[in-house]
Amino acid sequence: MNQNEFVQLIAPFKDKVFRLAKRLLISSEEAEDATQEILVKLWTKNEGLDRYNSVEALAMTMTKNYCLDQLKSKRASNLKIVHDNYTDREPSLQQKMEDIDSLNWVEKIINQLPEQQRLIIQLRDIEQCEFEEIAKIMNMNETAIRVALSRARKTIREFMTQTHRYGTH
């Protein structure tokens, strides 16, 4: 496989890798670094890639493992990830502002979930992967995935219905 073929191979899922990395690492900068790192790792496997049924699933698994390792080493060195880059969107009408605020707020709630639940929400509710696929990436069985997903969704609902104060969290 030459470089062009590889670039075409990763094109459909490189953003997916980035989004998953960002869900865990929060910072866009770090998620970009992670994506770069993972795709280069994939590129060095090159010839071995034929052995995998789905390169995309492999990439997602590598992303999960890589980012969890990153977080672990970061925790070990006592560095805190800075949550400072919630996307800036153009200022607009009052109603639109409120909507955006509540969207940001949803993001904050999701990003406060435990890592495993964050991964599952990302894969299911955002990337719309089938349970079978998620089970493979997470290395868990489908029942456990459903349980964790349900728990995560309920936690989000709790935050949204109980407090219901946009922008104060």
Partner: peptide, 19 residues
């Protein structure tokens, strides 16, 4: 907002070229 966020979050793309 919950479902709105899911759709929005799926549109995020990486801005950097992969080297």
């Amino acid at each position: 907002p919950l479902f709105g966020y899911f759709s929005l979050a799926k549109e995020q793309t990486i801005s950097r070229e992969i080297q």
